[in-house]
């Protein structure tokens, strides 16, 4: 056989190997799953971390009692944090700013973007309540000077003031600013800043682990066919296609 054919045959073999992924049967996979030891204590910590970060104070307190898991943050601070969040969510931005400063004045001092967004939200609330004059005054006195310092703040300010130009905001191109989602966005920004100031991660760990699961399954998919979990809410294994 000529060298040429040997090479061709070898190439074909390599190709065949690459095409036929390793197949792991459900039985084999379940055996592997059974060998994994997840500590209850760690799952408890994960759940506690979620409750605490998402601000479920009462649930966290109950969970501490029922499971004996210690929270990784002082539960009292959650109440304050949630009060701020709630204030923004319900449009009481002034109140929220005051509360943040009570909590830790450094949060807004060291975070000009957050402070701007809060002020912007305050402007939005004034406009929403039809207080046109007050809104204009507030924009000129409080927001415009900040816009001069920062180009992106200025653009945001212009976009917000544009709300005043429309009588019917439902047809206004920047009408989304009046949407509840804008409040939620600002609220979660404040929430994150407070958590960071308490040297706590701003996001719970559980969602990242779910992403990691999807990633890990996709990675393994390149090398093997195995039973996957596609529905996170049921955590049911699905046979490989």
């Amino acid at each position: 056989m000529s060298l040429f054919w040997i090479v061709i045959r070898q190439l074909a073999e390599i190709e065949a190997m690459a095409a036929s992924k390793k197949v792991i049967t459900r039985e084999e996979w379940e055996r592997k799953l059974n060998n994994v030891n997840i500590r209850k204590e760690d799952m408890n910590k994960l759940v506690m971390n979620f409750l605490v970060t998402e601000g479920f104070v009462e649930a966290a307190e109950k969970f501490r009692k029922e499971s004996g898991t210690e929270p990784d943050i002082d539960l009292a601070t959650i109440t304050d944090r949630m009060a701020v969040k709630k204030a923004v969510q319900s449009g009481n931005v002034e109140d929220a700013i005051e509360k943040v400063n009570d909590l830790n004045p450094e949060i807004l001092d060291t975070n000009p973007q957050l402070f701007f967004h809060l002020q912007q939200q305050r402007l939005i609330e004034l406009i929403r309540n039809g207080k046109v004059e007050e809104a204009l005054e507030f924009a000129q006195e409080e927001l415009a000077p900040r816009g001069e310092e920062n180009q992106s703040f200025l653009e945001e300010l212009e976009r917000t003031v544009a709300l005043l130009a429309f009588e019917d905001v439902s047809n206004c191109p920047v009408g989304e600013l009046l949407d509840i989602s804008q409040r939620l966005k600002t609220a979660s920004e404040v929430n994150a800043a407070i958590l960071t100031s308490q040297s706590h991660e701003k996001d719970p760990k559980l969602p990242s682990l779910l992403k990691m699961l999807i990633w890990a399954q996709n990675q393994l998919d390149e090398k093997a066919a195995f039973p996957r979990i596609n529905d996170l809410s049921t955590a049911a294994l699905e046979d490989p296609a």
Partner: peptide
Amino acid sequence: HSNLERLLRQLTACCYERRSLS
């Protein structure tokens, strides 16, 4: 097992398996 435990087991098993295939 709780769903959480099943998800975490799956995650762990996937990572181990992938490593053993690498």
